[in-house]
């Protein structure tokens, strides 16, 4: 694998990893694994491949399997190709009481995909969100590419989806 880093992780990703490594003691490089995977995923169009994870493992001096464990544990990492835009609908308690499940069904019907899938044109990935996104006072809510949209209605969802290229 040595020598592949230069090709797999680009300069921006490496700079980002180095930025995070600077925050931790030098003998604890694996502390930067979440930040490194986030940067690597961003570089790789929103999802991680085995090659990308292996490159991160080698860069940080971690066993490969330990990186796979992290990447598969956290829901913000995708390990399969995903659409350009990521939509997460919160279905935790406050949003659920405000009708989030209906909204998920509405989006699924509109896009023709289930949660965890991407549209065939590669435009939208509908994430299976597991966590409360901490916007309970504005529920039901969803997140598009790290931007929150609160107090959702079906009409509002239509507008949000239309704006995505």
């Amino acid at each position: 694998m040595s020598g592949n880093n230069g090709q797999i992780l680009d300069a921006h990703t490496v700079a980002e990893i180095e930025h995070w490594l600077g925050k931790y003691p030098p003998e604890q490089r694996q502390s930067a694994v979440l930040a490194a995977l986030r940067a690597a995923q961003h570089q790789n169009h929103g999802y991680l491949t085995v090659e990308v994870m292996d490159a991160v493992a080698e860069y940080l001096g971690m066993p490969r399997i330990a990186v796979y464990e992290v990447a598969t544990f956290y829901s913000m990492f995708e390990t399969k190709p995903a659409g350009r835009h990521s939509i997460s609908v919160c279905t935790n308690i406050s949003c659920m009481l405000n009708g989030a499940d209906d909204l998920v069904a509405y989006i699924e019907g509109k896009l023709g995909i289930k949660t965890g899938e991407s549209t065939s044109d590669g435009r939208i990935h509908l994430k299976r969100e597991e966590e409360c996104l901490a916007a309970c006072c504005g529920g039901p809510m969803l997140m598009v590419d790290h931007v929150y949209h609160e107090n959702l209605t079906k009409a509002k969802i239509d507008r949000i989806l239309e704006q995505l290229d």
């Binding site: 066993p63 399997i65 330990a66 796979y68 464990e69 598969t72 544990f73």
Partner: peptide
Amino acid sequence: GLRELGATGR
């Protein structure tokens, strides 16, 4: 001394 098996997923 060789991590080969791991717990992936959650």
